[in-house]
Structures are given as structure tokens and as C-alpha cells.
Computed example of a mutant assay.
Amino acid sequence: MLSIGDFAGLSRVSVRMLRHYDAIGLLRPAHVDPHSGYRYYTAEQLRRLNRILALKDLGFSLQQVQVMIEEKVDTGELRGMLRLRRAELAEQVERDNARLALVDARLRMIETEGHMNTGDVLFKRIPALRVAELSTTALGYDHPTSITENLSPLFPRLAELLEQAGVAITGSSLAYYRPAPTGPGDETITAHAAFPIGDAEVGTAGFDVVVLPPIDAATSVHEGPMSEAFRTGERIATWIEDNGLRPVPPGFAREVYLHCPDGELDKWLTEMQVPLDGTGNATEKS
């Protein structure tokens, strides 16, 4: 048999924890010396301890763990539970990494306050554009992952539908947004994924065909992931204010995806186009 210290070392838990498990009846020692009170464990008890720790890592309370241990959760069921928990943790890590990248980007923006360069913001008159599109509902800019998760799958699906319909894509893919409130205080938006199709004839093909109206817009090319689009948005907002102009409410930018290599978000190039209201005699630049 193993002393409590040796058992703790081999199982990589603390002696204090083993004593606690003994006190609540979760893992009793195999033997307690009646004279010294020393606790001793067997190697076989490591299996029970591993199950306890696995279930604890899944987020169950010790009371719940005890019930499950006594009900003898089989190895296959436990393996499935651990795989599910692993997937959940991996997803959480991905979300946390995205949040960390966003915090870093905002810190960089704060560091450049007072030194905003708006030289790359241009005024453009953008002609009407006929597009094929699919749309979805998302939770809005307060929940950027909702937009990505709902919008991104639409582009490959739309491209597939266009190919099946024999309709050629004539330009860069784009996205635009509209408010889509469904109740008081709701900030959901309708996100549209679109491809230009020129004057192509289209029958019934599982997508919508619309003509986006001509707009006067403040534009700038955003470099990097769209999760950091606020950097370019701030430049555009500063340029609009400096030029005495106003965005068309609610100020959503149209996004034209110029260069978007798979798996290389840092190399993405996206033109952000903010429609302007009352541009008057604003001068177009190329």
C-alpha cells in the first residue's frame, strides 16, 4: 500500500485534497493505522481518483461527482463526456483568443489617440450595383462573433448556387447590413452576403437578386481581420466629421472583400464604404 504522501505525489493532487475527499466520503483510504492514524491507499484507488478528477474538471460539484461515482459511470460514457468538455474548452479558448486580439487592437488605437491619420480615407460616388444575395439575422455589432458565425457560411453557399444556376460573378464579394429589430430594445441586424452579377439573367435559383442603389461614400481599405474593423471605422468617422458631413443612419458600412486568403486574416483587404447624407459638392477622388 501507499502512504497518503506517496499516493498524492503519484496522482499529482495535494494531501489536503485527499484528506478532504476522505472527510466527505468521496475517496476513503484503503487502510487507516489505528495507532498513528496514518492513511494508506492502494494503486487500484488511482482509478477512482482519476474518475473523480475527470468529472470535477467537467464542472460537476463534488456532491454530484459522488453520486455519479456510486452509480458507476462506465468508461465509454465518461470518455464521451470528456470529449464534449474538451470541445467546449477549445471553443472557449478560441473565443478568449479573439477577445484578447480585440483588446490588443483597442489598446493600439488608444495609443494613437490624437494622431489619427485620415489621409487614406477617400470620397467616392459608387454606382448602382446588381447583386445576388443571401441574408441572415445576427445579434449585431455588440456580438461580432454572431455576425461572423451567421454571415460567413452564406458566401460559399451563394457561390455554389450561382455556379449551379450558371451565373457568373463579376466582382468582389461584399456584405451590407440593415437594422432588423424584432422587439423593444432588440438590436438584431439583417446581414446580407452578396456577389455582383452584372446583367445576367437569373431564374428561380434559391437566392435573391437586388439592385443596390448608388451611394456617395467615405471609403477606406481595412487591412486585417474584420474583428478589428473599428480601427478603420474610427478613421472614417474622423474624416466625415472633419469634412462637415454626416453618415446615412444608422451608419453601417458596406464591406467589399478585395483580398481574403483562407486562414490568413492578417492579410485581408476590405474596402469599407460608409454612405454619406447630404454630400453636396464633395469632391470625388480616385
Rank of each mutant, 00 (worst) to 15 (best):
T112A: 07
T75V: 11
R99C: 15
F195N: 02
E91W: 06
L53S: 03
A205K: 10
R254N: 03
L245R: 13
G198R: 00
T190N: 12
H35E: 14
E187A: 14
I215M: 05
A159S: 09
P275M: 01
T190G: 03
D199Q: 08
I189T: 06
G76N: 09
T204P: 03
Q164F: 11
Y41D: 04
R51N: 12
P196I: 02
R51M: 13
A217L: 00
Q63A: 13
A237G: 04
G119P: 00
L49P: 08
L174Y: 03
R246V: 08
G233M: 00
A8G: 04
D262M: 11
T270G: 09
T148A: 12
E149M: 06
L212H: 02
L139S: 11
Y40D: 08
L276Y: 03
V221D: 01
L82N: 04
P261S: 14
D277L: 09
D22N: 00
L258P: 10
E88F: 01
G198C: 07
R130F: 06
E160G: 12
L134W: 10
D277Q: 14
V73C: 04
E77R: 15
Q64L: 10
L82Y: 05
H20N: 02
S61D: 05
L18Q: 06
E223I: 15
G80W: 15
A8H: 08
